[in-house]
Structure formats: C-alpha cells, structure tokens
Nucleic acid binder design. Structure first.
Lengths: 160, 160
DNA sequence: GCCTATTTAATTGTGCACAATTGAATTGGA
DNA sequence: TCCAATTCAATTGTGCACAATTAAATAGGC
C-alpha cells in the first residue's frame, strides 16, 4: 500500500481535487449504493405479498396508524403526492387500501386499510427477519447504523 | 406519554409483530430516507453544473477513470444499462461525454469525457464541500458512517 | 469452420421520485 | 361577508431504476 505524500505543490492555493471527488470518498454514494442494494434485496421477499418496496413502506406506515391522510403519509415517508397518489391508486386497485375524501375538509384524502390490507400484516412480519439474515451484520450494529442514519436525517431536516 | 407495557399475551407462540414492523425500527427505511434527503440536498448544488444527481455520480466515476465501457460504469455504480444508456445519452447531448463503439469488440460502448466534461471537474470539486456543511456531522463521523455503509454493501454483495 | 452459449448494450414496459403547476377547498384578515 | 393567501391532492413533464427481452457480436468447444 502506497501512501500518497502531500508534497505535491502544483498550485498551493488550489488544493488537489482528486481525493475529494473519488467515488469511494463520497458518503452520498455509499448511501445511494447501500440503499439500492437493500431495496433490491427486498424485492424477492415482497413479490409474494404483491408489493413493491415503496408500497411496503406505505403499508408499514398504515399498519402503524390508519386511516391517514396523503399528507400524513407523505410526512412519515418523506414523499410527495406526485409519488404517493399513483402509488396509493395502485394499492387501492390491489384491494389493500381505500381512498376517501375527508368529509370535514374535502381537500384531504383519507387512506384506510381494507381487510386484505390488514391481513397482509402477518405475512409482512416475516420480511424484516428474512432481510436481516442477508445483511450479514450483528443486530446491534444494525441498530447503531439505523440510529446514526436517523440522526443524520433529523439534523438535515432541522437545518432547512 | 403512555408506555405500552409488554404484558399483552394474545398468542405467546407468535411474537407480537408490532415492534418488528415499526417504521422507525427499519434500517431499510432509515437508509431510504437518508439517501433521499442527501440526494435532494445535492440538487441545488448540481443544477448550476447542469447535472442531475445520478449524472453527477457517473461523472465522478469518469473523472476517476475514462474512457470506460458502459459495463464498467454499471459495475462501479451498481446500475444496469437500462438506467445508464438513456442517462449517458443525455450526458452526450449535454456535451460532457462521447459514446463510441469499441473497435475491438463492437458490443462494447466506450464512454469518454469531452473537454467540457473534463472542465466540469473543477466546478464539481466544490460540491462535496458545500454538501458536507449541510450534513451537520463532524468529518470523522461522516467517514465512519461511510465506511460502515461500504462494509454493509460489500457483505451483501459477497453473500450473493 | 461451424454452431451453441455467452456477452454487451439497447429497448420495452412498469413503477417510482420530484419540481412545477393546477383546481378546489379552507383559512384568516379586513 | 368578502377576498387574498394558503392548503391539499392531483396532474404534467422529466429523469431515473430495473426486470425481461432483443439484436448483434464474441468466445469456446467440437
């Protein structure tokens, strides 16, 4: 392993950009790639349930709390209605949810679970377990990583 | 604040699925959300460069090593040609890269940087710096997180 | 040399993800 | 009460992301 010595003085006023822009120095890419890999790992587990990964996240949010407006779902999942509306329509078509205009404020649409949507929960419970096996990480490291990511997200949102 | 006591013994043989499926217990969601937030934070920084975030990642890979085949790019970025081909076509249209059939193996397409593509590198060097400011994390914690994510990705890929 | 299997990028079809915009409903101040 | 501002979901347009498939090129075994 060759250590790069910092005697290179091409332009002392302008630091070398080589290391800054290296893919493997980018947290953003590590996030992007890991997220993609995890999402992909979920796919075969969710297919028997008839759910895509984003749909699974929506169902998780609804199992936790339903009925819920599109806005509330968007806030829970950091997604906007451009993404959610078509996704929810597909979940409705699949028979897992219903979409109803709120009687008290007609701008709002309430998303409720159907019986089939509720019943899906039991099957879904096996998914995180099966996925954890594929992560090749001890459970406490998984929890640490999750907490760190949640901290990061919280801080970024607070900085806005 | 009401604490849910764990004296609920509906079905002792089947553990409660409530906690397992909670959104804030899912590493996958923490990853998904953080990745989304970071990608979004890049957007205003990349717009002046005329790049979307995935295009930026492709350019990072090319600044590191070019020319490069679509396959090599795909391997570096965990993306397939369905994603890359249209993306690269847009980068070509923007004048940042060229796409040429490899003379020795015509199945391959070599992606090279144009002068404009090379020149973009200097401007791009400011992006990670500007973004790091928004992360609200010390640099060593950023590096830790990045390393952990890279470990995770490596392990998941090795398990396939 | 011939033929099958494999490789590579492109294409097709589907489902996101998001900025900008739109239309309808509601809020709040004058 | 009226009207402008705001809110909410839906829509429009664009760019991904990926599974499956296709077409052309190459590799390798016989």
């Amino acid at each position: 392993m060759i250590t790069k010595t910092k005697t290179k003085t091409q332009s002392p006023a302008v630091p070398t950009v080589g290391d800054r822009l290296r893919l493997d120095n980018q947290l953003c890419f590590a996030l992007y790639a890991a997220s993609g890999l995890v999402t992909r790992a979920y796919r075969p587990l969710l297919e028997p349930l008839g759910l895509t990964y984003p749909q699974y996240l929506v169902m998780l949010a609804l199992w936790e709390q339903a009925p819920r407006t599109v806005k509330a779902l968007g806030q829970a999942l950091e997604l906007d209605s451009g993404t959610l509306t078509p996704l929810l329509k597909r979940l409705e078509s699949a028979g897992f949810v219903t979409r109803t205009r709120d009687v008290q404020d007609e701008r709002r649409v309430q998303i409720a679970l159907t019986q089939a949507g509720e019943a899906l929960r039991e099957k879904a419970a096996e998914v995180p377990v099966a996925l954890a096996c594929q992560l090749q990480l001890p459970l406490d490291e998984i929890a640490d990583l999750r907490t760190t990511l949640q901290d990061l997200a919280r801080k970024m949102k607070a900085a806005d």
